[in-house]
């Protein structure tokens, strides 16, 4: 595709790296994972860690509309105009994978209204272990599981655990209480993921999101290179 096409095109139809005016669009990172694993808390922590250095926005895909968006608003991690909730008809995985049009529009509207943006975080509602993001919607995806969900989740794998660009094993502070073996989780993850990175984190610790924020910074650097 040559540049003229983009300039004449009234609106992007897919995951083109450039916006209709020819400028580079924001990097889009998806966060998925089971209910309660800490996706929204991770998004909130990332916003706090990165909002001074990057122009950020968030799209949430809730099962019940707006719950996650409203958590982020209450926590005041970003101004309200930088947070958009997409309604998913009870199926977040459809909205992030099979029919991404509503999410693409939400991202584009954010870029139009509060842009230019460096980064858009697209959060999926809590869904099952098979839910992954379409490559038409996000440039990279993070899968969030937690130690309380069972230390056999990495071993069982599934597309999210096995193929996400980053796997977060969250709530490591709870491991002693729920009898999860962190070393085993890390080893199992390594065996199903090969070289793909894994971060074990507790957001209760000081600067708990530091490693993940660093991974995001690397992605941004690669995107804008």
């Amino acid at each position: 595709m040559h540049l003229d096409h983009h300039l004449e095109s009234p609106a992007a139809v897919s995951a083109d790296a450039r916006r209709p005016d020819g400028t580079r669009r924001a990097l889009r990172i998806g966060l998925g994972g089971p209910v309660g694993s800490g996706k929204t808390a991770t998004v909130a922590a990332l916003c706090r860690a990165l909002r001074e250095e990057l122009s950020l926005a968030v799209v949430t895909n809730d099962i019940y509309t707006r719950e996650d968006a409203e958590f982020l608003l209450r926590e005041a991690v970003l101004p309200p105009e930088r947070i958009t909730a997409v309604e998913t008809g009870a199926c977040p995985h459809t909205a992030i994978r099979d029919d991404i049009s509503a999410n693409l529009e939400a991202v584009e509207d954010l870029e139009d209204e509060v842009g230019p943006l460096d980064l858009v975080l697209v959060e999926s509602g809590g869904d099952n272990l098979t839910a992954t993001f379409s490559r038409g919607l996000v440039d990279a995806q993070v899968f969030v599981i937690d130690v309380a969900g069972g230390d056999d989740i990495p071993r069982k794998g599934g597309p999210g655990v096995a193929t996400a660009d980053l796997l977060i094993v969250n709530k490591t502070d709870l491991a002693p209480y729920v009898g999860s073996d962190l070393a085993r989780m890390a080893a199992d993850a390594k065996s199903v993921r090969g070289e793909l990175p894994v971060v074990l984190q507790s957001l209760w610790s000081e600067d708990g999101v530091r490693e993940v924020a660093g991974w995001v910074r690397e992605r941004i650097a690669a995107w804008t290179a």
Binding site: T88, C91, S101
Partner: peptide
């Protein structure tokens, strides 16, 4: 029904 045009989110 799987044509990706957003209908799944509307009742």
């Amino acid at each position: 029904g799987r044509f990706p045009a957003g209908g799944h989110a509307h009742s």
